[in-house]
């Protein structure tokens, strides 16, 4: 990795104007990973320097390794049964709480997205979409089960019914294009359905992803339910799809070679691969209860009854 260095970034500004003051040295945020409800540095010790449009370095970003991913899967597996057992009402409340926390820090997110190259209008739209999407999925929390469950007519004297259950662990590679709205759009439907998630942030917007982890961290979301890594798809994509303890993988990119290898790897333990590369993340078409159902298995129960 040619750009990987361990220098301290010169200057981080997230809208508080620290760089303009000559008498005071700005306090810079260390962007780390988010694993198991904690903010560890990557075990590999590698960083890349993130630069703004003018070429000024604004932060050091962790380059996560496969071992960081492995630790995330362990955390996600540990958290999954408890999260799945939480009531639909409680899960909905927590996802709504994430939206509230994000709304409360909107200025910070807008400024940070602008530092990563967006115009002010585009940054506003990203944040609005992300908040609205969280509220949308919070609403579905106690409704998708009703919509997608069924009582099935059967020939024998059985009461036969089907209902959705979470798959387990979802490993997702977030869209490159929309650092916040895209990230939220892959996390929310998985989490609201009782899954736990490991997500690789956009390489273009890694800072937003880690700041979003701070939002998750203050939203009563149990540790390990969402784990966020920053790093490169090139290095990590194969582990996302071949880890035997992952139950579904999502790829929001469009690289055909990556998709093919993900499908092949997914066959190892018959995990479900999903490719969301063609989605326009800012449009309402990007949100749907079917995105929740992509990450659910259907369980059918036969219950004997008399006449």
């Amino acid at each position: 990795m040619a750009t990987t260095k361990q220098n301290v970034a010169r200057n981080v500004t997230t809208g508080n104007g620290a760089e303009n003051s000559s008498s005071r040295i700005g306090v810079m945020k260390t962007y780390k990973l988010y694993i198991d409800g904690k903010f560890p540095r990557t075990e590999s010790g590698r960083y890349s320097i993130f630069t703004d449009a003018k070429g000024h370095s604004i932060a050091n970003v962790c380059v996560a390794s496969r071992k960081d991913f492995r630790e995330s899967v362990v955390a996600a597996r540990k958290a999954q049964p408890g999260w799945a057992a939480a009531s639909a009402y409680n899960k909905g409340q927590i996802v709504y709480r994430i939206a509230e926390m994000l709304e409360g820090r909107r200025d910070q997110f807008v400024a940070e997205l602008m530092h990563q190259g967006l115009s002010s209008a585009a940054a506003e739209l990203e944040v609005n979409t992300a908040v609205d999407r969280l509220v949308y999925y919070a609403g579905w929390s106690d409704k998708y089960q009703q919509v997608f469950s069924a009582v099935n007519p059967v020939a024998s004297s059985h009461f036969n019914f089907s209902l959705p259950e979470p798959m387990g662990i979802v490993a997702a590679i977030a869209p490159e294009s929309n650092g916040l709205a895209g990230l939220v759009s892959v996390i929310a439907p998985a989490v609201v359905g009782g899954n736990t998630v490991i997500v690789l942030a956009s390489e273009k917007f890694p800072l937003t992803a880690i700041t979003f982890a701070e939002v998750l961290h203050t939203s009563d979301l149990p540790a390990g339910v969402v784990n966020i890594l920053t790093g490169t798809q090139k290095e990590l994509a194969s582990y996302f799809s071949n880890h035997m303890d992952v139950n579904a993988c999502i790829y929001a990119g469009t690289n055909q070679v990556a998709m093919k290898s993900m499908e092949e790897n997914a066959a190892l333990n018959v995990k479900r691969p999903y490719f969301y590369g063609k989605t326009n993340w800012l449009s309402e078409d990007a949100q749907s209860p079917y995105r929740i159902m992509d990450l659910q298995e259907t369980k059918t129960t036969w219950h004997p009854i008399g006449q």
């Binding site: 899967v73 582990y239 071949n242 035997m244 303890d245 190892l268 333990n269």
Partner: peptide
Amino acid sequence: GVYQSIDY
């Protein structure tokens, strides 16, 4: 070379 699951 593949991380394993306790399921197996």
